[in-house]
């Protein structure tokens, strides 16, 4: 158990080191000198050279990487080439916004998918089960931004129940925060929920065919009780895998939805940075997204250990 934990943590650290090098290398091989890009085509060679010295861009790549990486570890993301502002606080602020959106969407997805998927599995021969499966199939095919536009059209434009876009921090106005969060979270959550419903359905279907469910029934548990007491925890194992992948997809997918709903999250920061050629910000944000995905995968692995005792204790006797 402890060994497994150490190994997994070691693997996380190695992945982080490798991916940071990959992100840095990718930005380095992109055509264009960051200093010239930042100063514009009309800047003098002297000004460009001065900026290169100022930001250390004239040093060897390896030195630049080590410098960037060691500062990253201390969460010092450097200063923007464009706005000259500290990147760290800005990124942190935007990341919080995205995190709210992603976590609430994920909660919506889980709350929708677990009961619906279970119902679709238990009633897979009845009309209800078929309907749930069919609806989730349609949901899978809809891109989140389209769902977002449809939701805005109905609930903001036609019914005027909710604001069409915008963002208010929860500390400033909690009621407004919730109102503005509902539609974007729903557009992301509904689509992810549809995907998740299908995985929950197939996981529960698999579990229902297991011998230990039959044993539970033979012990005198009703079908529902047998599923709840013996099935759901076992069905959770494949579902958690998908959940981890979805959380990663959501972090990236939020970029588009933030655009649709004018939310100042990590996605809009990334797009703005790309537009203004603020390469150091792009590099930092991409690295942060990579970090988030790796950490999610790490947490999923820890969750496996909590769910499945076969992974916790040693080999089969």
């Amino acid at each position: 158990m402890t060994l497994r934990l150490l190994l997994r943590t070691g693997a996380l650290l190695v992945s982080l080191a490798v991916s940071s090098a990959a992100v840095f290398a990718f930005m380095a091989v992109l055509p264009g000198d960051p200093a010239r890009v930042a100063l514009g085509v009309n800047a003098s060679d002297a000004a460009v050279a001065a900026m290169r010295t100022q930001y250390g861009l004239d040093r060897p790549l390896l030195t630049q990487y080590v410098d960037w990486a060691t500062h990253l570890v201390r969460f010092d993301l450097g200063t923007s080439y464009v706005s000259k502002a500290e990147i760290g606080p800005q990124v942190l602020d935007r990341f919080q916004v995205s995190l709210w959106l992603v976590v609430v969407s994920m909660l919506i997805a889980v709350i929708v998918a677990v009961p619906l998927g279970t119902l679709a599995a238990v009633r897979h021969r009845s009309a209800l089960g078929v309907v749930v499966t069919a609806v989730s199939q349609v949901g899978v095919a809809i891109p989140a931004f389209l769902a977002g536009i449809a939701l805005v059209t109905v609930f903001a434009v036609m019914l005027r129940w909710l604001p069409a876009n915008g963002w208010t921090p929860p500390s400033a106005d909690p009621a407004m925060f919730v109102k503005q969060l509902i539609l974007p979270a729903l557009s992301l959550g509904a689509v992810q929920g549809a995907v998740l419903t299908r995985y929950v359905r197939s996981a529960v279907l698999d579990v229902l065919r297991e011998d230990y469910i039959r044993t539970a029934r033979a012990k005198g548990l009703t079908p529902v009780r047998a599923l709840v007491r013996h099935g759901l925890r076992n069905a959770a194992i494949p579902v958690v895998t998908v959940l981890g992948l979805q959380l990663a997809t959501l972090l990236i997918g939020a970029v588009v939805i933030e655009r649709v709903f004018v939310i100042p999250g990590l996605g809009s920061l990334l797009l703005d940075a790309v537009r203004t050629r603020d390469l150091i910000v792009v590099q930092d944000v991409v690295m942060l997204l990579v970090l988030a995905v790796l950490v999610v995968n790490y947490l999923v692995d820890l969750l496996y250990l909590a769910i499945d005792p076969r992974l916790r204790t040693g080999e089969v006797r």
Binding site: A218, T222, H230, R310
Partner: peptide, 28 residues
């Protein structure tokens, strides 16, 4: 009814199945 059967199974009649490797819940 399923309700009556659930009350009978495990109390008045029990069953031992063929495959012991899969008959028990692996997470309990």
């Amino acid at each position: 009814s399923e309700h009556d059967l659930a009350d009978i199974r495990g109390r008045l009649v029990s069953m031992v199945f063929q495959e012991p490797m899969t008959a028990l819940n692996p997470t309990m």
